[in-house]
Design a protein around this nucleic acid. Structure first.
Lengths: 157, 157
DNA sequence: GCTCATTTGTCCGTATGTATC
DNA sequence: TGATACATACGGACAAATGAG
């Protein structure tokens, strides 16, 4: 627990508490958000920020604006448990491509089908497809559909 | 009051009580005689002697054989000016430290509080703290406060 | 496209410490 | 004695990015 009367600055105390939690977490695990820390330890948000800043400067965590702070250096694959929905969907499709159930120059399931299969909104399905396109797994032909790319353009795995 | 069951030796406890009285007395004022202390605190005369010896070794009092013990260094004419305010304040704080009302690694009153409690200027309060710091009673953490040192670094009493 | 919630980024003002002049 | 500077800490406000519907 924090000791407000103690010799050590609050943000330093908090940083060492978080250090303990981080040590028990695999890379990619989300660290408690600033708002959560604020509530849990009854501190100002600026103090929580300061503590996380210390951890970041120590290279123990990395922060993605608008998303959160995660254990380990940036670029680390986040544990699948914490993937956003659109990434999970994209992963499911790449799996089917690699397994051969989706063939090069053949259509992938339409947005509508993806919505039903995964129970998500259209925007989420669109984002999954956009993600696959950016990585080179698929390409889109206007007015016709989205197709699996030739194997040469697949990202190296 | 004295605590016969306490951790601290009786003569140390008595010395800190006397320190407080001395702090409020001008140099040259007679300290209670050994016999008076013996009666007031229900202790052996040897214990009273021992407490006064501590104060003498601290330079807080001097003893004239056959006459008595007096506040301040020897040669001081009695009933002169009061001690410098900062010394009075410092002595008050060391008393609280020795009495256990101010604990190691806990904050001492801030300058602002000392100003109000003793009715002195900020510079005076600062000087008192600086005095304590030089003697090893306290240490200061920037932007956080001044704290009681661990007992190991206290001046020997 | 829009809306919503969550999260981080940034800035402000206030209070409280000490440090310095 | 007073004024100023600096750092921590708190609290609030608003913007920007992200994910999701």
């Amino acid at each position: 627990m924090l000791d407000p009367e103690g010799v050590t600055h609050i943000y330093i105390q908090l940083a060492s508490i978080l250090r303990g939690r981080i040590a028990a977490s695999p890379p990619g695990t989300p660290v408690a958000s600033e708002a959560e820390l604020q509530q849990e330890f009854r501190i100002a948000r600026s103090t929580a920020r300061r503590a996380i800043q210390v951890l970041r400067e120590d290279g123990l965590v990395h922060t993605i604006p608008g998303d959160g702070t995660f254990v380990g250096p940036p670029g680390q694959p986040r544990h699948m448990e914490y993937w956003p929905a659109y990434q999970r969907i994209a992963a499911g499709i790449t799996e089917r491509i690699l397994a051969g159930s989706l063939l090069p120059n053949r259509r992938i399931p339409s947005e509508k089908v993806l919505m039903e299969q995964y129970g998500v909104a259209k925007a989420t399905a669109r984002k999954a497809v956009a993600h696959l396109r950016e990585q080179g797994w698929v390409f889109t032909v206007p007015s016709r559909g989205t197709y699996v790319s030739p194997q040469e353009t697949w990202p190296k795995t």
